[in-house]
Design a protein around this nucleic acid. Structure first.
Length: 113
DNA sequence: GCCTTGACGTTAG
DNA sequence: ACTAACGCCAAGG
């Protein structure tokens, strides 16, 4: 099978779409799950590309944070919609723009189980 | 076709 | 413990 970049993006969207309500994960976790350990930046790039392309179904990109739980992509959302959505889902913040991922972290690996 | 930038992560100082 | 730099891969200029 041929591994193209579009494939990688598609898998990113698929994984992100599986993130449960009130849970969050990191770019690195997704990249690692997809087998591209050093592709954390590509995950974020994929999400950015998704917003512009818009494939037809929405994905909870606001539940994807960096490994520190910081909402690094909040600038790409309207105002504080990212933080507001997470708060609305019951996600707690250790700081204004830092999620307490110790309690809400979701590991993509559970998809294999 | 080369150089810069970027929703990250790890290692070195 | 904190800050700086490098590595990673893809896209745009």
């Amino acid at each position: 099978m041929k591994s193209s970049t579009a494939d990688f993006y598609d898998r990113v969207y698929n994984v992100v779409a599986e993130i449960p309500y009130g849970k969050v994960t990191s770019y690195g976790a997704i990249a690692g799950y997809l087998g591209v350990k050093s592709g954390a930046r590509m995950v974020g790039y994929a999400l950015n590309n998704y917003q512009t392309e818009e494939l037809g179904f929405e994905i909870p990109a606001h539940r994807v944070l960096n490994r520190l739980g910081q909402l690094t992509g909040r600038a790409y959302f309207e105002g504080d919609s990212m933080r507001e959505r997470l708060t609305q889902e019951g996600v707690t913040f250790s700081e204004e723009y830092t999620v307490d991922m110790e309690k809400h972290f979701w590991d993509p690996s559970i998809l294999d189980n």
